[in-house]
Design a protein around this nucleic acid. Structure first.
Length: 666
RNA sequence: GGUGAUGUAGCUCAGCUGGUUAGAGCACGGGAUUCAUAACCCCGGGGUCGGCAGUUCAAUUCUGCCCAUCACCA
């Protein structure tokens, strides 16, 4: 039976860039969603930018733009980062939408009629200069316990104690620096204390992870407190209906953003909203979240939903945080790594794979250790998995014109692979990705061992063993196909490349019992570069450097980096045509290119062999730096360089069709 | 401070409800091999399973205490 499933990840806040910590969650969720789709289930994955609240408002002010402009920019940036990491949202929306406003208002009104909203006076710090109430994080002062200076209003980073902002010694507004005054105002409260019976029941039914259930018990024991859901103007958010200058606290409308994003999707592709969110909806609903926001998702959110006439989540899946080299991510250490900078140094799928080897269904922190990352990617992905195709495909091409045999040498091996499908899919379903990966790597070892035992390279020398050779290779390629299928939720882009190589339609789990026989495959091209420690070092350095220049870069160009137009014009860039390309003997990476630049020819030694084979380059147009001082290398003279993009995967830069060799570039 | 989680080979981690000589991958040493981007295959060294007590015929696995690390405190 086809399950109907709606999945969400927590909404990233529109005040900062996506970093590797965020990606743990999106990658975890995306693997699960892709797995569900491969199982043939109807599964939708929605998310949105979380756009409201004081930090967004203040940042927009600081940049001199409207909050709407800021959140539009962040939305574009976030979505582009997610897309690069192959996060396959069915909808990526915004909490600042008409749907979300309508739903938030309606939820509020229904809670009001259920008599779950109360109004109370609250005394808070107020910045008399900025004329606004200050959230705890925007008040700084001396810690009342350990007397450390310059601590936030809610807790001390030095001694770790938590307190009320009013206890701070010599409090200051972090925005204006003036001393805040105490001022009272009317606040709206959601009477969570009235919901504890319902929530206790819900906590049991939702089958929370043991750690989460434990935490819930702790909260129940302490007694649930009412929740302040209003904020005073100025505030960027939705005004509360029937009030003047009172706004919904961002945490009220943020989870409603899940519904709003789905509503927007539902309209577009004609889904029934009620089947997913109605009070008695039967479809499944899952939220993936970080452990820090369990309180909001396991208490406020189900209560809000239930008492406003909607369904509650089927399950809530919490995960731990990311540490880097065993320590909390730190901007000054350069381990606060942004998604974007990772992409400049590594293939995104290497991170997806690494996280998959670490992720379990427990709320445990996972560690990014670069030594470990490099060894996992190089030995598992390149050395074990890809190696299977790499060491056999050549024979299929050369000896059998790319065609697989119609019979198998050892069907038993492939049966073992097929039989592993339920083990692997159970592990994915249970979010025990590390278990799935262990099993897949065990199978990869079996495949490599099988090839080793049968030694196709020996058989290839004896023509009388052709039939057996053909069958052995066919088993190997089929093993590779099944491994690809099993890894596909984790490595979607690579799986797509491999499907093109095997010339087969997109695979799903139902394909785990069929084999490719009497079928022609394409020539093999290498699928993944090894990763190197050097790149990790560059990545960390880039993030450390970025810290110091972030502020100035947003406001004015950095003088050290900026160049004048005259500086640029000193570089003589020309369109060039590759007349010939050949491998430089004795070198790992170099190709010798003979380039036509109109009036003359030049020789360039270029380190692009890892990404381009010479036979593919002849007649291509490229861009070359013509006035570079010629460099004498061990293998001869190089009279310039050709422009490329990327560090590990290298891409030649090419002019548009019609350009002629020798044309100057300005 | 309160609460929780974790602590198994150099590194990253498996070890289900307690039961024969505690496992894997990587790293390391030796061998074999050359099809594969030095990848792959075989063999090996290496662990008082954080410490101390207790329950038990038997504890890495259960209980208590201690130590260390990490996280959370709406």
């Amino acid at each position: 039976m086809t399950r109907k499933i709606l999945v969400t990840s927590a909404l990233p806040y529109a005040n900062g860039s996506i970093h590797l910590g965020h990606l743990v969650e999106y990658i975890q969720t995306d693997i699960w969603v892709r797995f569900q789709k491969m199982q043939g289930n109807e599964c939708y994955y929605v998310c949105a930018d979380d756009t409201h609240g004081t930090p967004v408002m203040l940042r927009a002010q600081k940049e001199g733009i409207t909050p709407e402009t800021l959140i539009a920019r962040m939305h574009t940036e976030h979505l582009s980062d997610f897309t690069s990491f192959h996060i396959s949202f069915d909808n990526y929306y915004s909490t600042n939408s008409n749907e979300n406003r309508a739903l938030s208002e309606s939820v509020f009104k229904r809670l009001q009629s259920a008599n779950l909203i109360s109004i109370r006076e609250v005394e808070q710090f107020y910045d008399p200069e900025k004329k606004m109430f200050l959230p705890d994080r925007f008040i700084k002062g001396e810690c009342p316990k350990c007397h450390a200076k310059d601590q936030y209003g809610d807790s001390c980073e030095v001694c770790g104690s938590a307190y009320d902002p009013i206890e701070l010694i010599e409090p200051r507004s972090a925005i204006s620096g003036v001393e805040p005054v105490r001022k009272s105002s009317e606040h709206y409260f959601f009477r969570l204390s009235e919901c504890s019976q319902f929530l206790r029941k819900y906590a049991t039914e939702a089958h929370l992870q043991p750690e989460a259930a434990h935490k819930m018990d702790e909260w129940f024991e302490q007694g649930l407190k009412d929740w302040d859901i209003s904020r005073d103007a100025p505030y960027f958010g939705f005004e509360i209906p029937g009030t003047h200058e009172k706004y919904f606290y961002v945490w009220l409308d943020a989870p409603i953003g899940y519904m709003a994003s789905f509503m927007n999707l539902a309209k577009r592709i004609s889904l029934d909203f009620g089947e997913y969110w109605g009070a008695d909806a039967k479809n499944e609903l899952y939220h993936f979240i970080g452990k820090d926001i369990l309180y909001f998702h396991a208490l406020f959110w189900p209560a809000t939903l239930h008492y406003s006439g909607f369904r509650t989540p089927t399950r809530i899946f919490a995960h731990g945080f990311l540490t880097v080299d065993g320590e909390k991510m730190s901007k000054s250490r350069g381990t606060f790594i942004t998604a974007r900078s990772f992409l400049e140094h590594f293939n995104p799928e290497t991170l997806r794979y690494y996280f998959a080897t670490k992720l379990t269904n427990h709320i445990e922190d996972i560690d990014l250790n670069f030594d470990n990352f490099i060894s996992r990617v190089n030995s598992d992905l390149v050395g074990k998995f890809i190696n299977i195709a790499s060491r056999t495909a050549g024979f299929i091409q050369k000896q059998f014109q790319g065609k697989l045999a119609s019979t198998l040498d050892n069907p038993g091996l492939l049966e073992t692979f097929s039989k592993a499908a339920p083990i692997i899919s159970d592990a994915y379903e249970a979010r025990e990705y590390s278990r799935a990966i262990r099993e897949i790597m065990r199978l990869s070892d079996l495949a490599n061992l099988y090839i080793d035992e049968n030694k196709p390279w020996i058989m290839a020398k004896n023509t009388n063993e052709d039939k057996r050779l053909h069958e052995v290779l066919t088993v190997a390629i089929n093993a590779f196909r099944l491994l690809t299928l099993y890894l596909k939720p984790v490595l979607p882009a690579m799986a797509e490349k491999i499907e093109a190589f095997l010339q087969i339609p997109p695979m799903g789990f139902k394909d785990c019992n069929t084999y490719l026989l009497d079928h022609t495959i394409a020539p093999y091209e290498h699928l993944l570069q090894r990763v190197e420690m050097e790149n990790a070092e560059k990545l960390i350095k880039a993030n450390r450097d970025n810290l110091t220049s972030t502020v100035s870069r947003e406001i004015m160009p950095d003088k050290d980096i900026s160049i004048s137009i005259e500086d640029f014009q000193r570089i003589d860039l020309r369109v060039a045509q590759i007349l010939s390309a050949e491998i430089v003997e004795g070198s790992d990476k170099l190709l010798r290119l003979i380039l036509d630049i109109g009036e003359s020819k030049k020789t360039v030694l270029s380190g692009i062999r890892t990404s381009y084979s010479p036979e593919k380059l002849t007649n291509r147009l490229v861009i070359m730096v013509n006035n570079l001082i010629p460099k004498k290398m061990r293998f001869g003279l190089s009279e310039g360089m050709v422009l490329t993009a990327g560090d590990t995967d290298i891409f030649l830069i090419a002019p548009d069709i019609g350009a002629k060799p020798g044309m100057k570039i300005h």
